[in-house]
Write a protein that binds this DNA or RNA. Structure first.
Lengths: 205, 205, 205, 205
DNA sequence: AATGAATGAGAGTTCATTCAT
DNA sequence: TATGAATGAACTCTCATTCAT
């Protein structure tokens, strides 16, 4: 009943404003990249004044890493969810679908990451090594096992993962190009079918 | 007759310097993005003075656009080379290989394009519409034809092209991540095998 | 009757907080100078919030002035204590000792004054003219009298006072330099002997 | 004859502007301290634009340390000049006079140093340890020798040096106070007589 | 064809102070 | 009395671009 109060009680305003800022920063950083984004733009987009933003975050860098860290978990969730007990092919195709769904729902997050990696991951490398690598190692092992058991056709598991990432995130990261080539019409349904077919054929033993 | 010489000589210098600048700019833009790059860095990398750079180009933007335009041709060459007279499956797999080879040989160019698209193609959209779209339309048509003739398994040709782009360029654009996950060991041989297998399975009728 | 209590109580708190602030401000101003000091540092050092500090003082300037004024009296006390009835040489040497003792006990106060004078006494000039000058005039007169009576060797009384101030405060104001040249070992005993000898020799008729 | 040209040939303009800046910076830093000084003030005082100042120096800090370093030599020259072969008492009194003369001629330089030491010598400590300490050690040894030979009355040589520094620099560093107490009339002649008398009495065996 | 010198516009950040409660 | 929240003004520094030669 008398639950221990959280040590740092953030007021409602604090929470609201931090979120306003992060939302605005996601918009701006994903559109212009880290260097291309300015605090003025984030201030404008969040409806707060520039110094007020620096009341909540210690600087531009701090906002950026906060965003990246905060997104990391969400981003890896689908891979984490790959179930060793599940039916291998279905697990992998589910992963493809979920990854594509994330590209559709969170294109800005995808572009934020893409930007960071493209510049050599100056701020994220520790996280890549600390969180991503172990997870990928684990799941690559799982896929490898499935392949050796004959449940999946054989191919390099890590390159398989790269292909899944690349093809799904492409619709978010290269959206501008996709739009030029496909027009405004929604593209994700066709994409889903195509990718399902591709990975199903690749992986069916 | 000694009149022509200075002109020629200077034009040789001009050519050399323009190329020095473009090479330096490619290095810098691809590493830091458009906004992250500075003329000082380009001056430093090219060995020319900053005002001298602006003697050859009207501004930072101009260098960037020139680079992008100049690369467009090279970039599309493999797709252009897809031969309607060739054996369909082999033509497509050759395209995959050549695209992968380009990622290996010209990762900076790949990242330069990726950066531009990622930001919404502010400077390249005209070229995408003017040069890329017709070419893709043409080749998508060709692939479609092959599929209808039963030479290739059916899938959406444009999404197929996206998948080829995405998977091959991934090794250049997300190199930082690939390195974290694969170590320093060369990765392109395995990638080639994996992608060949994937697209062969997908497209074999 | 319970009416008076809150007032009293609050006034006790007021007093306590004003002192907390002044103590913190002395620490911070003497270490960083007026411009180098920030309200944040004073807030931190005093344990009060920044707006609360501005509840007790009308601004940064006001804190500074209050400190200077408040210290003025203490600072001049030894000179005031110079007794016309006393034995001249002993009175002067006592003044030297007390001044040196103040440098040892109140180095922050000494540096606070030094900073202010160094910048041209922008805030203290009125007090220098109103309080310091009459006092110095009086005591210089006294010393002059002593000299004319043959009780002290002759020298310019004001320059004598300057020499006493300079040599004693030096150990507080230039402490950083003294430490570099003398190491960490205590320095005031030697200083006392040296200064006693110097002024005794100067003033012995 | 064919003297080797200096490696970095600074153009006449460069030299002139660097000196303009340093002169202006001396004025501003000595008056307001490091933190109190602004680039705007230095720009104003030098007649150059703010970015132009940063074309010659890498930043505010750089200007400050350049000033301090450049002054160090001048500042120590009189002490360096103390001649082991000279007549001890005359050497020391000459040092007092020269030091006083420097306070008269270079009061801004004196205040610049005083400011720096007062704040704990954050930027100069290395120089104090590297250049000042050895010199003081050497000269203190020399004075000690003179005293043991009976050429000078005994007192602690380092504290003697402190007294000389303190009393002479006082006229520059505390000028504002001296002016309040002495009026506008020139003060250095009296000071010279007083200090000569004081140190002569102290040191005469 | 080339460059040292200079700058206006703007970037991120700090800080004394005020607002609202 | 006290404080989270907010801000205008100012600060240091950067950078694409221009000037003068």
């Amino acid at each position: 009943m008398s639950d221990a109060q959280p040590v740092k009680k953030s007021s409602r305003i604090q929470l609201r404003n931090r979120n306003l800022i992060l939302e605005a920063a996601l918009e701006v950083f994903s559109k212009h990249g880290y260097r291309g984004a300015t605090l003025d733009q984030i201030a404008e987009a969040s409806g707060l004044s520039k110094p007020n933003i620096l009341y909540y975050f210690t600087g531009k860098k701090n906002i950026h890493v906060t965003l990246l860290n905060q997104l990391m978990d969400t981003w890896l969730a689908p891979l984490r969810a790959m179930n060793p007990e599940g039916e291998p092919l279905e697990e992998l195709l589910k992963y493809v679908h979920e990854k594509l769904e994330m590209a559709r729902e969170f294109p800005r997050e995808s572009r934020l990451f893409a930007n960071e990696i493209l510049q050599g991951a100056p701020r994220m490398r520790p996280h890549l090594e600390g969180a991503l690598r172990p997870l990928v190692d684990e799941k690559a092992g799982l896929i490898q096992d499935w392949m050796q058991m004959g449940k999946l056709a054989e191919t390099d598991p890590r390159h398989l993962i790269f292909s899944i990432w690349a093809t799904t995130q492409h619709y978010a990261d290269f959206e501008a190009q996709v739009q030029v080539l496909m027009g405004e019409k929604p593209v994700y349904d066709e994409a889903r079918k195509h990718l399902d077919r591709m990975f199903r054929r690749l992986l069916t033993p």
